[in-house]
Design a protein around this nucleic acid. Structure first.
Lengths: 221, 221
DNA sequence: GACGGACCTGCACACAACCTGACCACATCG
DNA sequence: CGATGTGGTCAGGTTGTGTGCAGGTCCGTC
């Protein structure tokens, strides 16, 4: 018995998954797209594990995952996806996912994996600063009443960093999260984006700042 | 039958390894990144052997190994890595690893090596003082509520020493752990870092101090 | 207690990592 | 076609880290 949050746009898969969860005695919360998932799942502390489709109609599931993390959702996330390539797997895990399942999948395997993730329990990660909100649907950064728009790259980069509050995110990890696999980006490009993001954090009057840890990476303080 | 802790970010490899362990009748604990590994494995006294990927998304596996050691985990560690160079092997062993396997590897070989390591048994090393925590994810040194950031070299050096609590770590071993293979560092440079680390230990009010054993090396008291 | 080596301390220097501001290529769109 | 916005590069300045020197202190040895 666990509380499982499911975000899946395909009605068929949604139905199968929900039915299986019900039969297994789990409590399910459902969302049909990224925006709804964020609204429903973000503040729900009772959720034990999240099932997230990568290919959503309104936003990339990975972005949704990052936004959930930065909104304080610490439950483990399992990704569902039709994409089976290595790159998609890696980039999925790069954003703070905990497990991964390629469609088509065996429902029993999904249940087994969910059990493992749910058993892992909550309360292991730190809470992020709740004042700062990243919205994947609007691609914006909000702090209180002030809001700025983020470019796609800025969003992915900042999301990768906010998803691990307090921890130092290595430059490599930042590149892995913000750029497609195999992309060659000069160190200087990363610096440029960090600068831009700092400007925007400043713009909304963020209480936290993006600090560099020399020789390692970046962290939020 | 042994309890095996596995930290691997690649879902494919993780799955293969876990499946093999299950078939061989072993009990597996799994982590997906360095931070999780530290949280899950550090306090688990039942672990017989640890399998650690060097290339993790959030931290270098070697740093994770050092942190595990300093957190009191005494089980033997086997490194998995895509890097097959001699340097990587050596630096892996320099941080207290017990065995090494390059990807791609034969699962049977992994099992055989794990058997050897697990049979070696536990309880050979002393327990460290639990008050002092080296966190590779935050790249920091914590004691109670006080925390200081460490530079990369400071971190590696301190980790090498804390990984063998009570034992005297020779100057050579310190150099091997904190600097890349073949690096030439004067004795004086080591002294300089020892001084800096002492300052930081003092800063957090550490109950233990970094003492020098004249003519041999350094130890934690 | 004189000596020498090992170690500590404070300091200064070099260089890589990083920041900054400006600029360019390219795509998109009215 | 120009206006706009985004991703990316570059040159030059700034800073922190790593490094080693010079001189002092400690400690074992004879």
């Amino acid at each position: 018995m666990a509380r499982v949050a499911v975000c899946e746009d395909d009605p068929g898969i949604r139905r199968v998954v929900l039915e299986a969860l019900r039969l297994a005695g789990h409590d399910a919360v459902v969302a049909h797209d990224g925006g709804e998932a964020l609204r429903q799942f973000a503040g729900d502390d009772a959720i034990d594990v999240v099932v997230l489709d990568i290919g959503l109609p309104d936003a990339d599931g990975r972005d949704v995952c990052l936004a959930l993390r930065s909104a304080g959702q610490t439950a483990p996330v399992l990704f569902l996806t039709a994409l089976g390539s290595v790159h998609d797997k890696l980039s999925g895990f790069g954003v703070g996912a905990d497990d991964y399942l390629a469609k088509p999948f065996d429902v029993k395997e999904l249940l087994a994996r969910l059990d493992v993730l749910a058993r892992r329990g909550r309360g292991e990660r730190d809470r992020p600063p709740a004042e700062l909100v990243l919205d994947p649907a609007r691609h914006s950064l909000t702090c209180g009443y002030r809001e700025v728009m983020l470019t796609p790259t800025e969003f992915r980069m900042l999301a990768a960093i906010t998803s691990r509050p307090g921890e130092v995110v290595r430059r490599r990890a930042v590149v892995a999260a913000a750029w497609p696999d195999g992309a060659v980006v000069s160190e200087n490009t990363v610096d440029s984006f960090v600068r831009k993001i700092r400007g925007k954090l400043d713009e909304v009057g963020s209480p936290v700042s993006l600090q560099t840890v020399r020789g390692v990476g970046f962290t939020l303080r």
